[in-house]
Structures are given as structure tokens and as C-alpha cells.
């Protein structure tokens, strides 16, 4: 897969005055492929926003470097193909929604009829077309967030950086944004997503990095991270005898007729199935057990 973002030992330390520093990002090396939806998770102060700011050239690294679309940061050229929705964004309150997009479109080097038609398309896409003449100061939090998303998509970006895109948005709006992100992903856009809403991240991301205190705690595909290795849920059919003395049993739910078991190897799993069948237990399904990203996130942060 072609690399859209390559990060090499990138770190950031802020000075807090005389002899005091805080490490916002410890040396980080990783890459993000083209068309990938990449999730960055972590509590406040984990270093997520610092990483995005570094990649966009908003702040400068203390050490290391990074490449966005092949250009070393900071790169004005690369930013032509980048869309960004910052957390706590503030748009010029005196502009209308449409004027706001016109302003940021101009800053992205766009103008004329092509910009106008793009604005119209995006305003419709984020359901703000009917409110386009309204001043931004009169917009609700959810409307501002949708306007921000339209702003980030103005230049048809190849890379989209989204910092808390569903912040302040109701469940229906979140679903619309999720669908929009999936559309962008299908169109080949690389998406870099910062969010506190772990269930949201789980639904749309291909790969996730969990950070805390400027360091990476865990990285991998969503599937890899949520998989509990060697733990299976075995469901048995109604009317089947209730199994007892099951080796490796973690928990049993007689109401749902399930057993959670832990086995060391696939051979052990097969031996367990043979044993259950020999006791006339009618097996309905065997599913590898997964934990949620939220469970993993909380346990990792707790460990710290």
C-alpha cells in the first residue's frame, strides 16, 4: 500500500518557562497507507492533537520528521491536498455559512464557478444548504461541526485530518457523518481521525493507535486490537444438556446458553468440542470472543 503519511522519530517537547518542559509527543515512528481510515485514541493530553498539528506544520517538531504525501513537513504544497477539521474550531462569526466556505475555499486557492458549485454540493451534503445565508454566530454546535466538515472537504482532499468530528452531534447526525466518512474512504481519501467516541472509531477505522502521555500504548488493526486471543464463546442449542466441568471455562450464561472458554491452541479447542459432543451437548456456534476498543482503551490507560 502506498504511504500517505510517514512519521520518523517525531517528537515534541514544549517549554513551560525556566527549566520546565513537558513532552507532548515521545519519539514516534509509523506510517499510514493510502485510503486508510486511521484512528488516534487517547485521553486529553495524550498527544493526539500535537501529532496532527505537527503533521500540518502548525507547530514544529523537537526532533525527527514526517512526510505527508511525499513532502517533508511543513509543506505548503502538501496542504493543497489536505483537509482539516480542528477541535474547538472558530469560524469568523460575522460570515454566513456560505461566506465561510467561500473564504476557506479562497485560502485553499479555489475560486470562481468551480468553488461555488463545490460549496453548494457540500452544503447539501451536510444538510446546511437551507441555512447557508445564516450568520455562523447563529449556528448550533452541531451545525458548526457540519460546516467544519464541509470546510475540510472543500478542496477534495487526499488526506483528511478530523479532530473530534462528531463532537456535539446527535446520534442521527453522527450516523450521517459516519456515512460521509465511509463515502470518502471509498473514494480513496486517507482519513486521520481523533476521537473520544471509541465506539464511533471502532465503526469506521481500519487501524488504531492508542496513546497516553505522548506515548503509543498499542497499535494495530481494529480487529487485531479487539481480538481476545484464545478466548471463544460457545453457544449450545436449546434442549441440550447443560455442560459442566468444562476445562478452561471462564464464564457460563445458562439463559443465553453460552460458555466463554480459554484455550491455548486450536488443538485444545478441538479437544474441548469433542468432549462437549461426547456429552451430547449440541453446539450451535463457536465465535472468537472480541473485546471492544473501549474495554482495551480503559484497561491500557488504567495500567498507566
Amino acid at each position: 500500500m502506498e504511504q500517505t503519511i510517514r512519521i520518523e522519530n517525531l517528537s515534541k517537547t514544549y517549554s513551560l518557562g525556566k527549566d520546565k518542559t513537558v513532552t507532548a509527543l515521545q519519539p514516534l515512528t509509523m506510517s499510514i497507507g493510502s485510503g486508510e481510515v486511521f484512528g488516534l485514541l487517547g485521553p486529553n493530553g495524550a498527544g493526539k492533537t500535537t501529532l496532527v498539528k505537527l503533521l500540518l506544520g502548525i507547530t514544529s517538531p523537537t526532533s525527527g520528521g514526517a512526510y505527508v504525501l511525499g513532502d517533508a513537513i511543513p509543506s505548503v504544497r502538501a496542504r493543497r491536498f489536505v483537509g482539516f477539521l480542528p477541535e474547538n474550531h472558530r469560524y469568523p462569526a460575522h460570515l454566513s455559512g456560505e461566506q465561510t466556505l467561500l473564504f476557506y475555499g479562497n485560502l485553499s486557492g479555489m475560486s470562481g464557478a468551480s468553488l461555488r458549485s463545490r460549496i453548494e454540493l457540500l452544503l447539501k451534503r451536510v444538510s446546511l444548504y437551507d441555512r447557508r445565508k445564516q450568520r455562523v454566530r447563529e449556528y448550533s454546535k452541531g451545525m458548526l461541526q457540519r460546516l467544519g466538515l464541509a470546510q475540510a472537504l472543500l478542496n477534495s482532499p487526499r488526506v483528511l485530518f478530523l479532530d473530534e468530528p462528531t463532537d456535539g452531534i446527535d446520534p442521527l447526525g453522527r450516523k450521517e457523518i459516519r456515512d460521509l466518512l465511509l463515502e470518502e474512504k471509498n473514494a480513496g481519501t486517507t482519513i486521520f481521525l481523533n476521537s473520544h467516541l471509541l465506539s464511533e472509531v471502532e465503526l469506521v477505522t481500519d487501524r488504531v493507535v492508542i496513546m497516553n502521555k505522548g506515548a503509543v500504548l498499542r497499535a494495530g488493526t481494529t480487529r487485531e486490537l479487539t481480538e481476545s486471543h484464545g478466548v471463544y464463546t460457545i453457544a449450545y442449542a436449546e434442549g441440550s444438556p447443560v455442560p459442566d466441568a468444562v476445562p478452561g471455562l471462564l464464564s457460563a450464561d445458562p439463559v443465553r446458553r453460552t460458555l466463554d472458554v480459554s484455550v491455548a491452541t486450536p488443538a485444545d479447542l478441538n479437544a474441548l468440542i469433542d468432549m462437549l459432543r461426547s456429552r451430547s451437548v449440541l453446539i450451535a456456534s463457536i465465535v472468537p470472543k472480541r473485546s471492544s476498543l473501549e474495554d482495551l482503551f480503559l484497561s491500557l490507560v488504567d495500567q498507566q
Binding site: K53, I58, N88, P92, L107
Partner: peptide, 15 residues
């Protein structure tokens, strides 16, 4: 220079 404004402006393709 306010936070939330400057971040967005600096993310645009202009020096």
C-alpha cells in the same frame, strides 16, 4: 491568533 482560528488558517496551503 485565537485557538481554533489560527489552527485552521495555518492548515491551508499558504505560507
Amino acid at each position: 491568533m485565537e485557538r481554533g482560528t489560527i489552527d485552521l488558517l495555518l492548515s491551508k496551503p499558504l505560507s
